[in-house]
């Protein structure tokens, strides 16, 4: 795959889901490094290179964020809000990947600038097909913004 070097950030609290998603991605031969965050706070630390991820370079944002909505500590909608509020992370593609098909989640997600909204199917074949198409689209078809195109405004907090 073309964007082999860019990382995928998977934000998902369910261990089972993490395993099923990783299994599917591996099966589809996705070679990108996949970082898993188990709650909203960890996801934000990773994205903003702080806390446990303070040594991470801001110059290399993830190629795509797969975001669950129902998360411990900070929920997915809040993660999305902070991500979009910050210039250096504003352009990162975000795919909401959730069990919920509630209208209010859909509306919230899109209005905060989610790039896609995908409901995890119960059927594993469909699930795998969805993950495959996701990978194809965001890691092969889609052209990501150039790194450093949206620098973090220094001196501003």
């Amino acid at each position: 795959m073309r964007n082999d070097d860019s990382e995928i950030l998977l934000v998902e609290d369910s261990e089972d889901d993490v395993e099923l998603i990783l299994h599917s991605l591996r099966r589809e031969k996705v070679a990108n490094k996949i970082h898993v965050a188990r709650d909203g706070e960890e996801a934000l630390d990773f994205l903003f290179c702080r806390g446990a991820h303070a040594e991470r370079s801001r110059e290399r944002p993830p190629g795509v964020v797969l975001l669950d909505l129902k998360l411990p500590k900070v929920d997915g909608i809040e993660v999305l809000r902070q991500l979009r509020a910050e210039p250096s992370t504003r352009a990162i593609p975000v795919v909401i990947l959730t069990s919920s098909r509630e209208e209010k989640d859909l509306v919230n997600g899109y209005s905060l600038g989610a790039n896609s909204y995908i409901q995890k199917p119960v059927n594993f074949d469909s699930f795998r097909e969805t993950v495959k198409q996701l990978g194809m689209y965001w890691l092969v078809v889609n052209v990501p913004p150039p790194s450093g195109a949206f620098p973090r405004a220094e001196g501003r907090t």
């Binding site: 369910s14 889901d17 099923l20 959730t98 509630e102 995890k120 199917p121 119960v122």
Partner: peptide, 10 residues
């Protein structure tokens, strides 16, 4: 919608 579907999916 959310919580029952997740285990089912697993």
């Amino acid at each position: 919608s959310h919580d029952l579907r997740a285990p089912l999916r697993h």
